[in-house]
Design a protein around this nucleic acid. Sequence first.
DNA 1: GGGTGTGTTATATATTTTATATAACACTTT
DNA 2: AAAGTGTTATATAAAATATATAACACACCC
Lengths: 120, 120
Amino acid sequence: MIFEIDFNSDEAFYMQLKNQIILAIATRSYLEGEVLPSVRKLSEDIGINMHTVNKAYTVLKDEGFVKVDRRGAVVAVDINKAEDKRLIIEELKIIIARATLKGIKREEMHALIDAIYDEY
Amino acid sequence: MIFEIDFNSDEAFYMQLKNQIILAIATRSYLEGEVLPSVRKLSEDIGINMHTVNKAYTVLKDEGFVKVDRRGAVVAVDINKAEDKRLIIEELKIIIARATLKGIKREEMHALIDAIYDEY
DNA sequence: GGGTGTGTTATATATTTTATATAACACTTT
DNA sequence: AAAGTGTTATATAAAATATATAACACACCC
């Protein structure tokens, strides 16, 4: 799996990487129990600092997507945490507010959701 | 309409305000053509700096939700901008990746979407 | 016409966040 | 033993965020 940092983006590097890893897990590019690349290896591959990769891994751990031990960062999704779900719904409200105002009707949104779920 | 800043949140003040204003527009608390509170008034009301409110307004302008003239910031949603839609879809992919991993199934997501659309 | 209220711009300062660099530590695996 | 893990510590630099004070150009109203 190749991750890529957009150095011109205004999104923080660690956040870009975190999101790409979440997408990789959702699309089964990484399976439960698999070990992510080491912070040193990945930082070299994508051209950012080791500590920035480490921050991405730490956030992924805090958000319940991986567990980290001496072997490395292992995919381990912590499901059914009420707090996670609440946060997701809050973010959904905002993005759908934007979507409605930008002319995305309910039916189109459902179609988008289905298309995305089909990839996961 | 009352906006409120969570001073303990790790989300930037201008971003909190920006999102609350978008929600207010989506829920018809502010209608097309209405003037938002002045930057000075609103900054006093919610307890943050004038320039921070101004930044929220500027971002809302850049994202096509208001137009700003000498009268103030007027609600004026710029619909059907392809770039806006593309960005929304990108963000949807990430949030739905998180949702699926956290156990939110397709049917539940559709239900959530409907519930949110019902409020708009 | 003068006062008030707009957004806007400029300058300055302080804090926090982000990113990088180097080094070392404790532990595991080979 | 050697190499590879995450982790911690320290340091530095740049960018983002937030605040403060002041002024400007314009619109509106009494």
